[in-house]
């Protein structure tokens, strides 16, 4: 117990230093933060505008009105932003495998996956967070939600779970590089698929696909299930205070599986050169 606590303190201490260094790096390159500050919000504001246009042309989407869709979209974007901050490096894992960049992590006394993500922590991800929070608040207002402490806890819990699910999926996809020995960046595709399955209610898809998105690639838990229980839409599906906690649980499970797959891949790591 005491040893575990000491180890946790060690990791927290290193994390603090990593964050400090990430900020220093941003200060070194002020022009690029300006670029991302325009680029990332632009993407989500436009994406949100398009949802509005679709709703205006077609009416409700599968029984979800505009306010509820805004709430769903907000949760989706915020969890996306958090996953960008902590786990975006997973998209580039293939390059690390090919160029032998895991060497340095393997020779240090900390978890390899931890170092991989946290020494590359992406503070720029905050630029995704801002539009997410704006749309989320807009959705809360539109749905006339009462902000209670319980509600806040539920939102935070499900965001943590959702971020873990996303991160786990990035790790699973990235870790295939250990076996294929090729650098592929499926980030763009992953995001496009995630957008389509977390920004809209998955109840609009056929049942076979819903089954996959619930049990096999549990993207449904990122936003759809917890949000529908919070807002009380799609009642038939799932309801109850505990649904956000299920998201957290699913997040832990996905992360654990991803970690195991990564570790097995790391045994096949070949470094670079001869």
């Amino acid at each position: 117990m005491k040893k575990g606590f000491k180890e946790l303190c060690h990791y927290m201490d290193v994390t603090g230093q990593c964050i400090k260094m990430a900020f220093m790096t941003i200060i070194e390159y002020p022009s690029s933060i300006a670029g991302w500050l325009i680029s990332n919000p632009l993407q989500f504001i436009m994406g949100f505008a398009i949802i509005k246009f679709v709703v205006e042309s077609f009416g409700e989407i599968n029984g979800w009105n505009y306010g509820q869709l805004a709430f769903l979209y907000g949760i989706s974007v915020i969890s996306h932003a958090l996953s960008m901050i902590f786990f975006v490096q997973g998209w580039f894992m293939g390059y690390y495998v090919i160029y032998g960049d895991f060497d340095k992590y393997l020779t240090r006394p900390l978890g390899v996956l931890y170092q991989f993500f946290f020494t590359n922590i992406n503070i720029f991800g905050i630029t995704d967070l801002i539009p997410g929070i704006i749309v989320f608040i807009y959705g809360c207002v539109k749905c006339q939600l009462a902000i209670t402490p319980l509600f806040l806890v539920q939102v935070i819990i499900m965001l943590v779970g959702a971020t873990l699910i996303r991160g786990g999926i990035y790790i699973l996809i990235g870790s295939t590089s250990f076996h294929t020995r090729s650098a592929v960046d499926f980030g763009q595709y992953t995001q496009e698929i995630m957008d389509k399955t977390t920004m809209y209610p998955i109840s609009m898809y056929p049942e076979s696909m819903q089954f996959i998105l619930t049990y096999l690639i549990p993207v449904g838990w990122v936003s759809f299930y917890p949000v529908s229980s919070l807002l009380g839409v799609d009642n038939s599906v799932l309801n109850g205070l505990a649904v956000p906690f299920v998201t957290l649980l699913v997040g832990f499970i996905v992360m654990a599986l991803a970690g195991a797959y990564f570790t097995s891949g790391l045994k096949k790591y070949e470094s670079a050169g001869n």
Binding site: F102, T107, Y269, N274
Partner: peptide
């Protein structure tokens, strides 16, 4: 030789 030294340093399994 590099493979050997990398195994000794724990990089390669």
């Amino acid at each position: 030789k590099s493979t050997t030294i990398k195994m000794m340093a724990g990089i390669l399994t």
